[in-house]
Design a protein around this nucleic acid. Sequence first.
DNA 1: TCTGGGGTCCTAGGACCC
DNA 2: TCTGGGGTCCTAGGACCC
Length: 431
Amino acid sequence: MFALVDCNEFYVSCERAFQNKLKGLPVVVLSNNDGCIISRSAEAKALGIKMGEPYFKVKPLLTQHEVRVFSSNYVLYGDMSRRVMHYLSSVVPDVEIYSIDEAFLDLRGMERYHGCLAKYATDIKQEIYRRTHIPTCVGIGPTKTLAKLANRITKKNPALGGICYLDTGAKRQWALEQVAVEDVWGIGRQYATKLHDAGICTAAALAQCSESWVRKHLGGVVGARLVRELQGFPCHAFQPCEDGATPERQSIACTRTFGKPLSTFADLLGAVGAFASRAAEKLRRQGSAVNTMTVFISKNKYGTEPPPYTFSTVVALPVATDDTSDLLRYARIALKRIWQPSSVYIKAGVVLAGLETAGQQQLGLFSTSNKGEARARLLQELDQLNQRFGAGTVRFATASIPKGKQSVPWLGNADFKSGAYTTNWDELWAL
DNA sequence: TCTGGGGTCCTAGGACCC
DNA sequence: TCTGGGGTCCTAGGACCC
């Protein structure tokens, strides 16, 4: 059996954990740049506020109902997530962190120690709440997909008390019949349309589809696995990670929409340089080196201009590196290739792919290991300073930005940001 | 004229997830 | 004025190899 622990309305719950007065009130959290709604309390959902809606469009509705609005505060959410995951890792041997607010638990063979798994899950749920004030729901089933499905059912049926355990064939059948096909894990918009056109409208109907039909219409092996999982045969590997540690990534990206449109090469280089620096930090944190970098810049796709909106270029690095100054150098070269004068851009990004284990990459023909060691120490210092005193405290000159928010041309809006209650002494939460 | 039958590697693009 | 960001996996098709 596998369990999926899912934090309810995670970002909203993080804000509520530090502001008790928000409980029972409609609350929403906005995406970066205060662009879209990305988390809604139940009260906000009830007002008809949809996921992903642009903030400026729903602003009147939010004002009318006195909805509390927050800019996203990823430092806070990341730290709260770490606390939840760390606790889970301390009570269950094998935990797979699936996203910032979800984890799969491997409960195979655990009845022996804990008796009924529903009771065990209830204890875990209550302890998470006691420690963090984050409410959760737990779905338990023989496959990850069924655990997901069970989790969804708890959210729709408050009477279940946040726990749904699909321990018998009858319960599984019942559960499959409850869930619309578009709400199955792995069924997105495209597949949902196809399925409805074929008269397949529930998870139960999907579970009965023939493998050949599914292979033909739902992405080949992906669809075949999905159906098998619904039938109770595990096809998705369980991938536990060490004590709440974040899993190693195969690609690392840093992309942002600017606070205002930019057009000069200098402004764009400032943004791309900062993104490359940030990506390099993430790279070093997981001990990787990169051999392929993509840089892109985008125009506004909502305007009257015809496509294309995004211009990107890929740089194959001669030698895999984790050095910020290397990435800054190539980022500048890449930007030169795609930037056009008198164009207006609203977004840029740096994506690192082709990640290798650092230190094991091939030495360049003319590089010397002494230089490498000194360099590595410097970068380590840089990362530690930035971690301790805040991102961007120490930077490379090319990624440098003048002091003061107003002079950082690419910085996005965050007009409603709560404090770094748990990670910054100056903003420490107090009663 | 006939124009095999494997492989591998890479990339672009599509679909999905939170 | 104002429309997020960061991931995963799979497939098809081309280039190239023997």
